[in-house]
Amino acid sequence: MKRRNFLQYLASSGLLAFVNSEGVQAAFAPSIRYLRPPGSHDEKKFLSKCIRCGKCGETCPNRTIKFFSTENGISSLDTPYIIPREQACILCMKCGEVCPTGAIPKIEYKAEPIMEKVKMGMARVDTNLCLSYQGKTCGVCYRACPLQDVAIKVGRLEQPHVLEKCVGCGLCERSCIQIPQAIRVIPKYQG
């Protein structure tokens, strides 16, 4: 091998390693806050299992599930996602029923298995925006929650407190009357 070729090889492989490094990947990662359908595995396993057939979206009775184009990177192309502020998951578990590959596991439509296995994210309250924390009694998020007093409870002036059991369906975020919303679901892949 000639020295020039060797140096070229070295430079290009160095560049490739740099581009593939975690910091650079994180810096260029798009900042979309989305959820995966209920019960999905973690992001990496989900992407490796999903074959992009679109049946989850075709089954969703609430038209919650949408599909990525190129905005979240090539490996997310045509994969299902949920933006809770636009349309939140009603936890009907029909997407898991039709998913052929197990990317969205089959979960029984009952409270216990759902609470146990579904973890799309975790709701978080912004006390600076939340009306109840500003002295105006609201409590809409509490009333929208399908798991009242298990996933969310209210204190004085209906101030919401999110509990550990929250499955991250996003119905609270969808229903929040503040603009921008005072309660958001933080996806589980964002920690």
Binding site: I51, R52, C53, G54, K55, E58, T59, V98, P100
Partner: peptide
């Protein structure tokens, strides 16, 4: 729902 999906994967 008896017929769902497409030729890539369907029911």
């Amino acid at each position: 729902s008896a017929v769902k999906g497409n030729t890539w994967s369907g029911t």
